[in-house]
Nucleic acid binder design. Sequence first.
DNA 1: TTAGGGTTAG
Length: 761
Amino acid sequence: MQVLYDSKSSRLDSGTYFDGVLGSKLAFMYVTCGDLKEGRRVFDTIANEKVFMWNLIMNEYSKMGNFKESVYLFKKMIKLRVEADSYTFSCVLKCLAALGSIKEGASVHGYLLKLGFGCYSTVFNSLIAFYFKCGKVKNACKLFDEMNDRDVVSWNSMISGYAANGLAEKGFEMFIEMLNSNFYVDLASMIIVLSGCVNCGDLEFGRTVHTFAMKSGFSREIAFNNTLLDMYAKCGDLDSALRVFEKMGERSVVSWTSMIAGYARKGVSDGAIRLFRGMEREGVKPDVFSITSILHACARDGILETGKDVHGYIKENDMQSNLFVSNALMDMYAKCGSMEDAESVYSEMPMKDIVSWNTMIGGYSKNCFPNEALNLFVAMIQVLEPNGITMACILPACASLAALERGREIHGYILRNGYSSDKHVLNAIIDMYAKCGVLVLARLLFDMISIKDIYSWTVMIAGYGMHGFGSEAIAAFNDMRRAGIEPDEVSFISVLYACVHSGLVDEGWRFFNIMRYECKIEPKLEHYGCMVDLLSRSGNLSKAYRFIEMMPIAPDATIWGALLRGCRIHHDVKLAEKVAEHVFMLEPENKGYYVLLANIYAEAEKWEEVKNLRDKIGRRRGLKKNQGCSWIEIKGKVNIFTTGGNSHPQAKKIESLLKKLRLKMEEEGYFLKIRYALINTDEMEQEVSLCGHSEKLAMAFGILSLPPGKTIRVTKNLKVCSDCHEMANFMSKTAGREIVLRDSNRFHHFKDGHCSCRGFW
DNA sequence: TTAGGGTTAG
């Protein structure tokens, strides 16, 4: 080896012409040692190279995904009249299939028939695989029918090809035919059939194959068992997967990864992490596949700490260059809410694929960085073509901004670029319109979907819920079940949430019980949160307290917080004090809860307690600030207002309009509910004059800027305050304007002095 | 030549 290296530096650089054994060996050495670039350089200097070397280099390009280069070399060798063999044809057909070049593949087909390769089953098998990969099922079948000497690979290629084209059942028929005709079935046939079961979700046929394998001895093969347990896991039968796993005599990293991925997919993240630790204990070294799966598990449950440990392992073992690993790492950080870490992974990636972009866009969208998501989307479409998933990732950014005009623009982009047939995209569009306040349009698009999946229904139910249309949400939920779609935990959250926002206590209980007893879904924190909210708002405070105490899982601050809000609505100071203890213990740094308790005291005119609480807060540093902020989109521009803000160019006009409105309100006998605004949520200062909340400023700006008759759409990052709510009611009446205000919790439609929330917010 | 585990979407 050393000699060859030396000869390279001295002879190649001086331009020596290689033509013999030495050059060939040198190129071979480089390629097989992983330096394809250098191998190719030497290869290009050799005249009359043998077909073996052409095949080797073509195959290397194919392995690294550079199919075009491989095809180029094939064409070059034909031009140079190098005699291609069956290996060459197999390789080029694989590359052409990957490129989707049906025409070129068909001409290779013609060419090899002309050369007399018609008698080679190897070449025919490659052609069958080629046609299946290009979706040309008929061509593949015709070839198979015409074959004189089919071997096991021909049969396997047919079964596998059928499954890849969504026709797994046809493949199963062929498999049965193989067995009936006593044709030799090999390990690959068994693995292919099990993959087919995964493909069409046919767990029963998978079980049959399992029984057959027990009798025929395949169940001793590790590769078979790996596929078998993966089949069980992917078809949702984790118990059977675990049984196979436990019985396996020998386990490889593949076996462990299939189990870990199975648990992660089902959302049993702690189980996945336990398995991962078990694998390490048994001395099985995690590879890129298992690392990706464990990251997925951390992402599912937001387990940042374990995710960071895994990141450390990735760095130590130099796995960052694997795209799957880096993408899963970014996704983990994004799902754990740490966009800074996701950004740092993203910026260090030398190569990015569409998943990398989509993950970042989706991460920004969901972590309240809609502008970053939109900017990244614009940057992305300059350099690569987005896909349906990109659309499903970017639409929530418009939804979270309630930026209807941007949402419409993207909807237009989707229609123009042909993404509208993708179900995920359609669901995201419906969600976007619902969250931007145009529920009618959301419903119209929903009705246009011919086959609605659980996501379509859930989006619609949630849409009705956030607009306060509880009975419509319930009707949609029932329609979904009638359509044969079983609700999952998310659809239950949506319907419970809808009950909360319409004050439908009995219905809420009914759904909670259906979920537990009929659908056998274990309630999670979100479901308990809805129930506590429902009980608290409707005044069943002590019942809510007992309900929390009975919860089988530990309640978090949001659960106690919901009860604390209920205490405020129903003026129960004593219980509030008890509840606040829990809240402060669980989230001591959240300023909002101190403000809430202070308001409860203020409304009960317990000024001494208000003072004590304020002193206590004053002593505590580092409380989370929750700056109130509202925005309104006008002519595609998002105008942002903060509480008491006067930096807007039209600040004076806005202020004078608000003053006029308030005077008018007083004249018409509106008694300002100052007590609601005693403690300013944003600044913790006692309100003495007007409540200068951001939503008021944004609504007033809407009246000033939009033509009469146009709906004013305002979005606020926090819950709307009662004083602002009152004023919005008044504005809708006196200005004759329809106002749609989306706060952090729900929609309020103000029209003719009334709000759609009917007091439930 | 066919064949086993991994990432983005409510």
